Amino acid sequence: MKLSEMKKLGEVIEDQRRDPEFRQEWDGLVIARQVAVVVVRYREHHGLSQRQLAEQVGMNKAAIGRLELGEHQPNFETLAKLTRTTGMTFHIDIANGAAELTGSAA
């Protein structure tokens, strides 16, 4: 198969979302994935390793790795800890049965 014949990631995800079980899991982790993007951007922008970021925010390297995977919902305490020393921001909007997070990597 040629690269040009492959489906784009968004198309693959939309195909998978037809499965109610996948859709529930995928949609339920939207905030986790958005936090992951902010954390990775911050770390890369500042030239930090996971270990260095972990030391900066008072977490362990494994916790930063889990955040960056975007597969586990972070709690409010974790989000607050990330903002305390980094300048990252997170804004959560909950409406109409859905939650959305916007954030910046400072």
Rank of each mutant, 00 (worst) to 15 (best):
M1W: 06
K2I: 03
S4E: 10
S4G: 05
E5L: 13
K7E: 10
K8F: 04
L9F: 04
L9E: 06
G10S: 08
V12M: 09
V12E: 01
I13R: 07
E14K: 02
Q16M: 09
R17V: 00
D19N: 08
F22M: 02
R23E: 10
D27G: 04
G28D: 09
G28K: 07
G28V: 07
L29G: 03
V30N: 11
I31T: 08
I31N: 05
A32P: 03
A32D: 03
A32G: 12
Q34N: 13
A36M: 09
A36E: 13
V38Y: 00
V39M: 05
V40R: 14
R41I: 06
R41H: 15
R41V: 05
R43C: 04
H45L: 12
H46L: 08
H46D: 03
S49N: 12
S49D: 14
Q50F: 11
R51Y: 11
R51C: 00
Q52P: 10
Q52H: 13
Q52I: 07
E55F: 12
Q56E: 11
Q56P: 02
V57L: 06
V57W: 07
V57M: 14
M59V: 01
K61P: 06
K61C: 04
A63M: 06
A63V: 03
I64D: 01
I64K: 03
I64W: 02
I64V: 15
L69I: 06
G70N: 08
E71W: 02
H72V: 12
Q73M: 14
Q73P: 06
P74M: 06
F76T: 03
E77F: 09
T78Q: 11
T78R: 03
T78V: 13
L79S: 01
L79E: 00
A80H: 13
K81T: 02
K81Q: 15
L82E: 03
L82F: 11
L82D: 01
T83V: 08
T83S: 15
T85I: 02
T86S: 15
T86R: 07
G87L: 14
M88N: 09
T89G: 01
F90R: 06
I92A: 11
I92P: 04
I92M: 13
I94C: 08
I94W: 05
I94Y: 07
A98K: 15
A99H: 06
A99K: 10
A99L: 07
L101H: 11
L101Y: 10
T102H: 08
S104Y: 09
A105L: 11
A105F: 14
A106K: 12
